[in-house]
Simulated assay, not measured.
Amino acid sequence: MKIAPSILSADFANMARDIRTVQEGGADMIHVDVMDGHFVPNLTFGPGMVAAIRPVTSLPLDVHMMVDDPEQWIPAFAKAGADTMLIHVEATPHIYRAMQLIKEHGVKAGVVLNPGTSLAAIEEVLPIVDQVLIMTVNPGFGGQAFLPAMADKVARLAKMRAARDWHFAIEVDGGISDQTIASVAKAGADICVAGSYVYAEGDSPAQQINKLRVAAQ
Rank of each mutant, 00 (worst) to 15 (best):
A155Q: 11
I170T: 02
P41V: 06
L113A: 11
K186V: 03
D190R: 01
L157V: 01
F168N: 04
A189T: 04
M160N: 01
I191A: 08
G174Y: 03
R156I: 05
A82Q: 00
I74S: 11
I19H: 02
L133K: 00
D152Q: 12
Q131P: 02
I53R: 00
A82F: 02
K186E: 10
K159C: 02
D130G: 12
D165P: 02
S183V: 05
V137D: 09
A91Q: 02
A145R: 14
F141Q: 12
V214L: 11
E123R: 12
V89Q: 11
L126C: 06
A200S: 15
P60A: 04
Q207I: 09
T180V: 01
A206Q: 06
N114Y: 07
A51C: 00
S118H: 12
I3N: 05
N42Y: 13
L8R: 01
Q179F: 10
A206W: 04
A169R: 15
H64N: 07
T117V: 15
Y197M: 09
N138V: 15
H31Q: 09
R164E: 14
V129L: 13
S6G: 08
M150L: 13
D62K: 07
W73T: 07
Q207P: 04
V34S: 03
F146H: 02
S183D: 10
F12Y: 14
D83V: 01
A215M: 02
L212K: 00
A162C: 05
D28T: 04
M150S: 13
V214F: 08
R20M: 12
R97C: 11
A121R: 08
R164M: 11
T21Y: 02
A182C: 05
M65S: 07
M150F: 00
V125P: 05
I122E: 01
Q207F: 09
V40Y: 04
H105T: 09
N210P: 03
A27I: 03
E201Q: 15
F77M: 12
T84I: 14
V184D: 00
K2S: 07
M85G: 02
G106T: 01
H88Y: 08
T57L: 00
S183A: 12
V198Y: 06
A155F: 04
A51H: 05
D178N: 10
P55T: 01
S6T: 06
H105Q: 15
Q207H: 12
S204A: 12
I95W: 07
A194R: 01
A82W: 00
V154S: 08
R164S: 13
S58P: 00
Q131V: 13
G195S: 05
K79T: 15
E124K: 11
E90K: 07
M15W: 05
V56A: 06
Y197S: 06
V63Q: 02
F141C: 13
R164G: 04
M160S: 00
M160R: 08
E104G: 14
E24V: 04
N210C: 10
P115N: 14
F146P: 06
S183L: 01
G26C: 08
L212T: 01
A200D: 13
V112W: 00
Q179V: 10
E90A: 15
L86R: 04
A189S: 06
I134G: 02
H105V: 05
L101Y: 10
D36I: 06
A216W: 06
E104I: 07
A155S: 12
A149T: 13
I176Y: 07
Q217R: 14
D83M: 09
L157E: 02
A98E: 08
D178K: 10
K2D: 13
M150R: 09
L101P: 02
M49K: 08
P205E: 10
M99C: 15
N138G: 08
